[in-house]
Design a protein around this nucleic acid. Sequence first.
DNA 1: CCAGAATGTTGACACAGCTAACATGGGCGC
DNA 2: GCGCCCATGTTAGCTGTGTCAACATTCTGG
Lengths: 198, 198
Amino acid sequence: MATARGYHHGDLKAALIRGALAAVETGGPDAVSLRDLAQSLGVSTAAPYRHFPDRRALLAEVAAIGFNDLTAAYARAQAEAADPVAAMRETARAYLTLAFGRPGLFKLMFASDIVDGEAPASLLGPAQAAWEGLFRAVAAAEPGAEPAAIKRRAITGWSTLHGFITLVQGGRLKGFMTEPLTEADLLEAILDKTLREA
Amino acid sequence: MATARGYHHGDLKAALIRGALAAVETGGPDAVSLRDLAQSLGVSTAAPYRHFPDRRALLAEVAAIGFNDLTAAYARAQAEAADPVAAMRETARAYLTLAFGRPGLFKLMFASDIVDGEAPASLLGPAQAAWEGLFRAVAAAEPGAEPAAIKRRAITGWSTLHGFITLVQGGRLKGFMTEPLTEADLLEAILDKTLREA
DNA sequence: CCAGAATGTTGACACAGCTAACATGGGCGC
DNA sequence: GCGCCCATGTTAGCTGTGTCAACATTCTGG
């Protein structure tokens, strides 16, 4: 699909994003090398720069895909749930599914380097949409609460989930998860605690 | 302090660690370049390799300093607090102080790259000690609870704090902290929520 | 006092991101 | 239908990085 064509590749930009996404999912953000990518697409090492100002811009595009997928997963979870509380739980689970199912992509999405200085709008939009999906779930589960309270609640819950994921994926809980305390148990406990409360 | 001596530097290893620490605190882990470091110490680019097998080993040493400092801060907080609940609160605050006061170092301490594969014992020891300081605070505030419950509680609280810090420092809460909801407010709310409960 | 271990140096390799200058060819205006 | 322009690729090369092998120097213990 990436071979046997002349001077022009045809759709190099999309191919680069696809390739970068694959590399990110396999080995995380650091596994993306523009040179490797170019070579594997049968194109010169300078070609990618016709489509992205620099490496970070390409990675930002990949991260945006991650946020879009996350938003879609949120929407699915909320549509299928029986009631608002279940919807909130499934929304949280969607976050966990992405984090543990596609850790490389997840790491990229929250790699501060990508966003340092200022992030491009093509990333901020999807990131904002994902956040709103999460906010919506919390708001629905807590009818009548004032916006500030909902926001506080959403951010706190998000923090707990995100922190746990980060610590686990960073290997920081390695020595501490002694039987009979497994990561899965803890996750359930965290979900329960995060979701239950006035 | 790093000039005007002959073939042998004197204490290059310590000087490298000091220099790396300074660089990390200024610009985060990525700001550490062995070549820069060597040059600024008036030594050849290969010299660091007489003391560290690779760059990661040097950074691991710096991270270990961070964990040691954290453990010391925990101990201080717990010694000065009036009661166990206050001690726990001050312990959490010590974590926040390090995270927001020395963000570069904090980022290094939790950069999974440093620990990928397997971390050296010189890092695992201090990291473990810090964890135990945190665990001790939770256990003291909750006398008579079984160890698994304490552990669950400690990890959950740690996750919330850590997640919030990570999201803030990653710039992920930029657009969402609208007045009158400030980061400081949220932090207090998180501390309250994390600490209060049976 | 001297041998060998520690510690530094020189010079180089591989690889990465990035850029300038040049080449090609597809599509748009005429 | 034709030619020109610009989007897209290419070549060659710069800088900066981690790392290593081979050699040089100094410190130290027997």
